[in-house]
Each structure stands twice: as C-alpha cells, then as structure tokens.
Design a protein around this nucleic acid. Structure first.
Length: 438
RNA sequence: GGAGAGGUGGCAGAGUGGCCGAAUGCGCUAGAUUGCUAAUCUGGUGAUCCCUCACGGGAUCCGGGGGUUCGAAUCCCCCCCUCUCCGCCA
C-alpha cells in the first residue's frame, strides 16, 4: 500500500509507476474519493465535538434543561448520521482501490514488457559442454527410479512430483544445506503455518492481485495455502511496533509452497519445473525505513542465493527484472536463473525483492526510532533454495555419461558422504569411462 | 467436538453508561541527588486521521464488525482469537 499522502501530492509519479509496471489503476477515482473524505472528515469531527460537549452538559443539567438539550441532540444526530453514512460509503470504495495501487518501481528498474526484457547483470560459471547426449531430469529420474510423475499425478493431479530414494535424500540435503547456510549467516530459523487467513496474503501483497494463484479452502474455514513462506514469515510482526534494537529481524524457514499455476496450461508441463507443490527455504528481512540499509540487505540476500549456487557448482546468471515483469508490491527485483541443460537456457530459481514500506504498511509493521518516532519498516525477501527447480539443475548439470549423478562436495556431508548417486543406466565408451574416473 | 474463563497502552493490570484515552505498577526517558555500580526523588512517556507554514486545535481507537443511547471500554447481537478442563488425535 502506498501512502495516500504520496498519491495526493504526486499523482503523476504514481501514474508513471503504474505505467512502468503495466498495471492499471484508477488514480483519478482515488483522488476524487480522497477529496470527498477530506471534505467530510472535518465536518464529522466538528459535529462529534459538539455532541461530546452537549453530552457533558446533559449530565449536569437540571431536569427541565435536560429535556430541551436532549431534543436538540436528537436533531443533530440525524445530520451526523447522514454524514457518517456518506463517509462509510467513501471508505468502502477507497480502501479496496488503495489495495490495488502498486508499489513504485525504482529508477534502476529497466523498462520492459515481460521477462524477455529483463536485463542480465552478471553470469557465474560456464554451462557445461556435454560430449555425450545428456538426459533431461525426467528421463534420468524415472530411469533411476527416483521420480514417478505418473503416480504423483494419480495422487494429486498433474503438475505434481514424487522424489524417491537418493533423489529424495538429495532434496533433503539441498534444503538442509540452505537452512544451515542461513543460520550460519545470522538468520533465525522458524517453522510457520502454510495455511493462513486472508490478512497475511493481503498484507504481503498477494491479494487482491494474485488471488488466482492461491489455493483456498472452502467456506467452513476460509483459509489459504501459501505459495511461499514469505507470507507467514513477513506477517509474524504484523500489528506490532518494534523497538529499533530488535531490528533487523532476519528469518529463514523451509515450507511447502502451493501454487495453482492458473493460466499456464501447456507451459512447462514436463517434470519438476512448474509444479503445484514444492519445498522452499525462504529468507525474509525486516529493518528500519532506510533506503541505504534496504539496498545493503538486498545485495546480501542476493549473495546468499548466489553463494549457495556456487557451492552447488551450478552456472547461473542474475537479471534485473523489468517493469512489466515486476509484481505489484516490489520496488525492485533481481531474479537468479540457473542453467538447465534440458531447457537449453537459464531457468528462474530465485527471486530477490525489496518492498520499501509497501508490505509493512499493509501489515502495519512499525518501529520506534531513538527519538521515539514511529515509522513503517522496510521488508525484503529472497529464495534460498526452491528444491524442485534446483533438483533439475543438479541432476542435469552433474550427470555422468553412464546416467549416474555427481554430488557437489558441499552437499556430501548431508548425503552420508556419497560422491555419486544412482546406478549405471547407459552404455559408456572406454573414453567416457576414463573421463568419469577423472 | 463438549464445558468454562478471558481479550484494555511497550508489558502487567484496574475500570460495569457521562467526571475514562483510561488508575496503579513495571519498563522507557529527561532532570536532581549520592565516590563508582546501584539506589532514591521529581517530571515526561500510546497510535492513527483531519485542519494549520507553524504554534496549536479537533476527531477516532479498550480483539473485529454491527446495534441500543443525547452519550458506550462499560449494555445487546454476530464473528475472531487466547487460556483451562474433558473427548479425540500425529
């Protein structure tokens, strides 16, 4: 949510932000309603003030006077009620409209329509040149007996997966590595609900815009399955006024993530890339309202993700996400895309966002500074490890000619020391065998 | 699922129709004071919105929403949450 004062003071800035994000938003109507609000508020305040004074007079008045005063107040009350009803209508329209106003993109956000306009900032590692025909993760996984998409679909519909045996172990190892890394870097580990009420989703900015992507339970409970632990983690301090000494709050949690993937029919249907449920470790930062501090955090949470990929020996690139590909709540977002041989390209595995005070306003997360003044916090978050997509990269990039998969040394401690997983499932030439030895 | 008790400021906790945005204690903070640490005394100390260049003024907020009333933390209705006991359960 943007500060209404900002919209009032500089509507052009807001319109420009909407345009850059390709988001439609009725700024004019908001200004109209705000204008009406500001006309009504002082009138109502004044009437209530006189009502209060009259009330005190009535309490002290003699019986004769009292009857007269009561009559006067009854008259006043009708007028007040009318104004209050109009005020109610104005607010009922204004509030949902304000929730649709997107956050303003930073100047550094490139202009553009969709992810093809994202700007590459840097690359790390070199995509491997295979001197054999590599298998994609689905072939590899099913032939090793590690994955069964057919059974997964029978149990939970399409876009589901089951990992088994060593691959399941690898999935655990990835998640565990991610948690350990973040704890080492000073983040507090947490377990959080994945079934939440409307407020955390509205507060983090997923509602109303992203409602189609969210699973919800029926009217008996009216609960929603989160698409990321960001939602409950960021909402932990909702409604609080933190003291400045408590900041920054740095949290990390692993959770199941649920996504409806509405409108993606026929897209990425094969394998683990786009699934309805996966495991993810997410990092969240809540800190003071300071642009420079926010930028530092943004760089740091991005580095956490990059360090993980480097430890996994996976080539990746970082892109500066353009306006049209940016979500409504973000000020700026860097995506990390990891090399996936079967896609012959980089696929998004991480998304590092900063929000300014957008989420904090909606969630009412505030802090008291050293002078005792209250401000809204800044929030940020980034993926640490989305297990399903990392499994694609790990299997495909580290596969051996015989169909086994090498385990990066960073993951071996969580794999009982295994250096390679799987059994030979393909014929190899003598030259290839020699290469595997090396 | 059944029965009961509750939800008040940063925290604890009083307040059952007007004198209550709210006692008191703790915390925080400024000052005074005493070799230091500490203690003691005195004062200050909620948020949001509106008007104002400002000084200042006004309104709203006692879990949320609605109602009764000239007037609601206080009375009524609905909802949410927490705790205790019983039942069930990983």
């Amino acid at each position: 949510m943007l500060d209404i004062k900002l919209i009032r003071a500089d509507p052009e800035l807001v319109r420009a932000g909407c345009a850059k994000k390709r988001i439609k938003c009725d700024v004019d109507r908001i200004l109209e309603l705000d204008d009406e609000f500001r006309g009504l508020a002082p009138q109502i305040d004044e009437l209530r003030a006189s009502q209060k004074l009259a009330g005190k007079a009535i309490a002290k008045a003699s019986p004769e006077e009292r009857a007269k005063l009561l009559e006067e107040q009854k008259q006043l009350k009708t007028g007040l009620k009318e104004l209050e009803e109009r005020m109610g209508a104005v607010q009922a329209e204004l509030k949902p409209l304000l929730l649709t106003v997107p956050n303003l993109p930073a100047a550094e956000v490139p202009d553009g329509l969709d992810d093809s306009d994202n700007v590459e900032l840097r690359k790390w590692g070199t995509p491997r040149l295979f001197d054999f025909e590599p298998l994609d993760h689905v072939d590899l996984g099913e032939r090793q007996g590690w994955m069964n998409t057919e059974v997964a679909a029978r149990l939970g519909g399409s876009r589901n997966y089951i990992t088994l045996g060593e691959l399941a172990r690898l999935e655990h190892a990835v998640l565990r590595f991610a948690m350990d890394l973040m704890i080492e870097r000073g983040f507090d580990p947490a377990f959080v609900p994945v079934l939440v009420r409307r407020e955390p989703l509205e507060g983090t900015g997923y509602f109303p815009g992203g409602i189609d992507q969210i699973y919800m339970t029926d009217e008996r409970d009216e609960l929603y399955l989160v698409g990321t632990a960001e939602v409950p983690l960021t909402s932990i301090h909702a409604g609080e006024i933190l003291s400045e000494e408590q900041l920054p709050v740095q949290l990390v949690a692993q959770s199941s993530c649920f996504r409806r993937e509405a409108g993606t029919y026929g897209k990425d249907t094969r394998g683990l890339y786009r699934v309805h449920q996966f495991q993810k470790v997410e990092q969240v930062v809540i800190d003071v309202a300071d642009e420079a501090r926010s930028l530092e955090h943004h760089a740091a949470i991005l580095k956490n993700a990059e360090d993980l990929l480097q430890a996994f020996e996976l080539p990746y690139r970082v892109v500066n996400v353009c306006g049209g590909d940016l979500g409504a709540p973000q000020v700026q977002k860097f995506d990390v895309e990891t090399w996936m041989p079967s896609r012959e390209g980089y696929g998004e595995t991480h998304s590092a966002s900063r929000f300014h005070d957008f989420q904090a306003r909606r969630l009412s997360i505030r802090y008291r500074d050293k002078e005792g003044k209250v401000h809204y916090c800044h929030t940020l978050n980034n993926t640490v490890a989305a297990s399903s997509r990392l499994l694609i990269a790990l299997m495909e990039n580290h596969q051996l000619p015989d169909g086994r998969v090498a385990v990066p040394s960073a993951l071996r401690p969580h794999m009982g020391g295994l250096e390679v997983i799987g059994k030979p499932i393909r014929e190899v030439t003598a030259a290839e065998a020699a290469e595997v030895e090396a």
